[in-house]
């Protein structure tokens, strides 16, 4: 959902106001980097992809249709950059889990902490073992918490395909975990 403030900002950026575009960069740089990282799996690639995404978005502002939501439009450009880098590298770097905090420090039951960590490790390995299109749709929907519309834009597919692919990917993941 686009707020009226953001809509005005986008309109100003489209009219060539550099300060307005910079405000959009500030607002979206974190999401852009995270999206690129989850898709590319590599921090350097993600930073480049997010940078290039903003520069290309700036170039393409003339083609942006005012009134349309800006966020999915930007995500589509950044995600495309990230996937291009992943393809040109020929492989995807796998995501990893953060180091587990000492149970004593986190206040969690030590046994539960270990079991939870193992379960998450297994789940992440299973996600990373999926085909790229299945893995990407799950990453967008659950890791980045993008809406169906945003996922469709980011992956360059129809909204209906997001639904069917998510369903298929979850089934395959369930199979893997059995």
């Amino acid at each position: 959902m686009q707020t009226p403030g953001e809509e005005a900002l986008v309109e100003r950026a489209c009219r060539g106001d550099p300060a307005a575009f910079e405000e959009l960069v500030l607002a979206y740089q974190s999401l852009a980097f995270r999206t690129a990282f989850v898709l590319a799996g590599d921090a350097a690639d993600a930073e480049e992809a997010a940078q290039d995404g903003f520069v290309k978005a700036h170039r393409a502002l003339g083609r942006f249709r005012l009134g349309e939501p800006f966020r999915p439009w930007l995500l589509a450009i950044v995600a495309n950059e990230a996937r291009n880098r992943r393809r040109s590298r020929g492989r995807r770097a796998a995501l990893a889990l953060r180091a587990v905090a000492e149970p004593a420090a986190s206040g969690e039951d030590p046994e539960e902490a270990v079991l939870g960590s193992e379960r998450r490790e297994r789940l992440l390995t299973a996600v990373e073992g999926l085909r790229d299109d299945d893995r990407d749709v799950l990453a967008c929907r659950y890791f980045l918490e993008l809406s169906e519309e945003e996922t469709a834009a980011a992956l360059g597919i129809a909204r209906g395909t997001v639904k069917s692919r998510t369903h298929r990917a979850l089934s395959r993941l369930q199979e893997e975990l059995r």
Binding site: E22, R34, F37, L95, R98, A99
Partner: peptide, 10 residues
């Protein structure tokens, strides 16, 4: 997930 902090891109 171990996601690095977002760099300042501006």
């Amino acid at each position: 997930l171990d996601v690095p902090p977002a760099p300042t891109l501006l």
